[in-house]
Amino acid sequence: MANAQCACGALKLMVSEPPQLTAVCHCLACQRRTGAPFSANAFYSAECVEISGASTEFIRIAESGRKVRMYFCPICGSTVYWRADGAPSWIGVAVGSFAEPAFAPPSMSVFEQSRHKWVQLDDALEHFEGLPTGH
């Protein structure tokens, strides 16, 4: 099992399985959410995630027009996880919230259309200008 948490530790997730997908995202919404030029994300089957602690929900509209529900700690403000209406069986978790340098590397890089040009990523990743289809 792995544990993710916010900066102050009040909002925690325990996951009982490995992620189904890890990816980095360069979309402008992720840049704003993280304050960084891209986000690192792990996606889990909702059934294997146990959430404890209070969270505040922020809903944004994705490029697809569907809702993405972001959950952050009301004490320290860290966004720890999210749920997208477009993928209701998954929970996305910020990789940094695991604070685990050996965490599984990403398999893909998405929304590279807004990637900062100085960001260099491994050629072993699948690269997509937008959101991949068929994954």
Rank of each mutant, 00 (worst) to 15 (best):
S114P: 07
I61G: 06
L13P: 04
V68W: 02
T79P: 05
A104I: 14
K12C: 12
T133Q: 14
R60S: 15
W90R: 15
H26W: 12
N3Y: 10
E126W: 08
L13N: 03
C27V: 07
C6W: 03
A36F: 02
E17P: 01
P101W: 05
C6V: 00
E17Y: 03
N3H: 10
S64W: 09
Q120L: 14
M14G: 02
E50N: 13
E112L: 08
A29S: 08
M14I: 14
Q120I: 14
A87K: 08
V24Y: 01
C76D: 01
C6M: 00
A42F: 03
W90H: 13
R66S: 13
P37I: 10
L13V: 14
E57S: 13
D123V: 05
F128Q: 07
F128S: 02
G77R: 02
S45K: 11
E17H: 10
L125R: 02
F43E: 06
Y81G: 02
E126F: 06
C73M: 03
R69P: 00
F103E: 11
I91T: 13
S78T: 15
S52T: 15
C48A: 15
K67D: 11
T79H: 03
S109G: 13
S107K: 03
I91D: 09
G86S: 04
G86N: 00
L21A: 09
V15R: 03
Y44M: 01
A102P: 02
C25I: 00
A23P: 05
P37L: 14
E57Q: 14
W118S: 15
P19T: 06
P74H: 04
K67T: 13
S64L: 07
W118I: 15
V110F: 09
Y44W: 01
T133S: 14
S97F: 02
V93N: 01
P105H: 05
D123N: 13
H135Y: 12
C8Y: 04
T79R: 02
T22W: 05
Y71K: 12
S45W: 13
A62I: 08
C25G: 09
E129M: 12
R66Q: 15
F72T: 01
C27I: 03
V80P: 04
M14V: 15
I51V: 15
P101A: 12
Q31N: 08
V110W: 08
G65N: 11
F98E: 09
G77H: 04
L125E: 10
L13C: 10
T79S: 07
F128A: 05
C6S: 05
Q31P: 04
H116M: 15
F103G: 13
P19H: 01
V95L: 13
Q20A: 14
S64M: 07
A62H: 04
V95P: 03
A94H: 10
A29L: 09
L125W: 04
Q113V: 09
R115G: 01
L11Y: 03
A124R: 07
